[in-house]
Design a protein around this nucleic acid. Structure first.
Length: 331
DNA sequence: AACCCGGGGGG
DNA sequence: CCCCCAGGGTT
């Protein structure tokens, strides 16, 4: 590995790294928390969640003792809710069976729920200084270009190729910083539409030399995304309570709470199916969302309906813009 | 290996 | 508006 490449990388990082709260700590708990929040999530979106979680649960012990509902509520709007469930599972597991100490190797960390190859390497290198490469989407893209790799990044059999390169690139003196630097370039410079003129590694970049930057990384074709529409009925009683129900245990937004809604699997909204009791305040809200496939679901039945006030801490399941639309549902 | 699981940003 | 992005778990 070219030593000048490593040196250029670290020099650039020390000058240009964003100041992020989880970079100012060595606490494995906070580093783990940040990594779970940042899975499939941009920094700007995840940061406020990190702030709220660390404020409410400053230590692993605090989180391990939390109620499931409160954690789900704090996760509301972030998506991929199984992350929150696994977060709590892992917190209790580490607290109870590891005496509150996270495993200090990637191999040990990967046994915890919600921690896979990327996250285990991230925690192991950031918190414990293990010299193992982090291979997330940013690093896949950066390595594909830097070494002009034509192996497909979303085929599992090619992962070892990228992992080996990431391992080689690590500066053994500062494994964590070195990994952070790679991801930081991927996130800010070597983006899908790269800013090569600003890149500290441009003189080392094989794809740039060969003019193949726009062909990297190589990726499979994506599945078409289906669109679904749900009509939500925002039903309020005289005291400002809203009717909600819990979703089914399987499928999207599993077990989260939501207002009453029309049957799913319909392309066009069918507003006339509602039989509205005009003694109650109501409004109908259309939500469009995208997903690949949606399992069939029973229609709402009255026996599952509960009424909650705006101050109660139920977990809802809406996309953030929709939540904002009736954050105060005593409209 | 294929599929499921949300939400947001940019052109 | 359409297209793009991305870890871990389950099947």
């Amino acid at each position: 590995m070219n030593p000048a490449l490593r040196s250029d990388l670290l020099t650039w990082y020390r000058l240009h790294a964003r100041d992020l709260p989880w970079r100012n700590t060595n606490d494995p708990y906070r580093i783990w928390l940040s990594e779970i929040i940042l899975q499939q999530t941009r920094v700007d979106q995840g940061r406020p969640y990190y702030e709220r979680f660390t404020e409410r649960f400053p230590t692993l012990k605090d989180l391990a003792q939390a109620q499931d509902e409160e954690v789900m509520k704090l996760w509301e709007g972030l998506g991929y809710y199984s992350r929150a469930r696994n977060l709590l599972k892992a917190a209790r597991l580490v607290q109870q069976t590891h005496n509150g100490h996270f495993p200090n190797t990637a191999e040990g960390l990967e046994k915890l729920p919600g921690i896979g190859p990327y996250t285990s390497a991230a925690i192991a290198s950031f918190a414990f200084g293990q010299a193992i490469g982090v291979v997330d989407g940013n690093v896949f893209r950066l390595l594909s270009r830097l070494f002009d790799i034509d192996a497909c990044i979303d085929e599992g059999k090619n992962r070892p190729v990228f992992q080996a390169l990431a391992n080689e690139l690590i500066d053994k003196e500062v494994p964590g910083i070195s990994n952070q630097a790679l991801m930081e370039i991927g996130a800010t410079i070597c983006t899908p539409r790269p800013k090569c003129q600003k890149c500290p590694l441009q003189t080392h970049c094989l794809a740039r030399e060969r003019g193949t930057v726009d062909l990297r990384p190589v990726r499979k074709k994506r599945n078409k995304v289906k669109e679904e529409t749900i009509d939500y009925l925002i039903l309020l009683d005289g005291s400002g309570q809203m009717a909600i129900q819990q979703r089914a245990a399987q499928g999207i937004w599993a077990e989260l709470f939501e207002p009453l809604h029309s049957a799913e699997h319909q392309v066009q909204p069918k507003l006339d199916q509602w039989h509205i009791d005009h003694r109650l305040t109501h409004r109908i809200l259309h939500i469009r969302f995208q997903l690949c496939r949606l399992k069939t679901e029973k229609k709402p039945t009255n026996k599952h309906i509960i009424w909650v006030g705006a101050d109660q801490r139920r977990s809802l399941a809406f996309p953030v813009p929709v939540l904002k639309a009736f954050a105060h549902w005593d409209l």
